[in-house]
Amino acid sequence: MAMISDAPVLQQTSEPAEGAAMRSRLSRYARPVLGVLLPLTLALGWEIAVWSGWSNGRLVPPPSRVLATIAELVRSGELVRHITATLWRVGLGFAFGVIAGTLLGAVSGYWSLARRLLDPTVQALRAIPSLAWVPLFILWLGIFETSKIALIAVGVFFPVYLGVMGAILSVDRKIVEVGRTFRLSGPAMIRRILLPAVLPAYVVSLRVGLGLGWMFVVAAELIGASEGLGYLLLDGQQLGKPAQILAAIVIFAVLGKLTDWLIEVAAAPFLRWQDAFGRARGA
């Protein structure tokens, strides 16, 4: 739809068309600005409130103090160390969770026998709150990296498993039939029909999985770590440094959004064909 609405704008150069082009350019920049308007106003308001003495900002430090804390952490090199540790854990946990979730999800989706064997067990395990694994993982894998990565992988595994299996099960029978009439072999059917059909749902499940990965890295690092953003949170709480806690939260938000965006951008070229609501709205 975006193409259709843009086309006449590009061809005509008359007054009203130029106005429309200007407006559309404006809306392209205005849209993201609209999104940051609310947080920016709140931040500014709080800054003014503290600066003018209405609040001492001891427990809720103003943005300037949070930024100063971040700058200080950057200068000392602490921040890079913490971010590296956290990213490393999320990355490894995510990788293991995605690999396991994709493999098992694909197997359960493709073979009904495997689904009958596997799925009830997986669903039962899914019903366990993932944090309940923590004591066991610590006993089995020690308190260092392995148990943390295992916990994150468990968090990532379930949405990916469910996403892949559900996507395969809901592939349109009519499209599969097209593959059959062209006598595709099993592997060719997977490569040429199932994989592309499943991809949109797969990307969504990866993003959900990543979100859970970030959730669980905090849990893992709160339980016992000497570095990482979660440690920064805990350290801030124990030493009464709310600015440091907020700094860690802000960095979590930025990293979470950034990694999610990376998946979206990496998948975009493969999903250009989608005929979706979001695309029609030019989102």
Binding site: I175, T181, R183, L199
Partner: peptide
């Protein structure tokens, strides 16, 4: 089973949405 000498056209076009028109024809 489906045979190379027999083609079929369904009530719906059943094009593969992830392939361009040309790639659909060459499927």
């Amino acid at each position: 089973s489906p045979h190379a000498k027999i083609g079929i056209i369904f009530q719906e076009p059943r094009l593969l949405p992830w392939l361009s028109v040309a790639d659909n024809i060459g499927f």
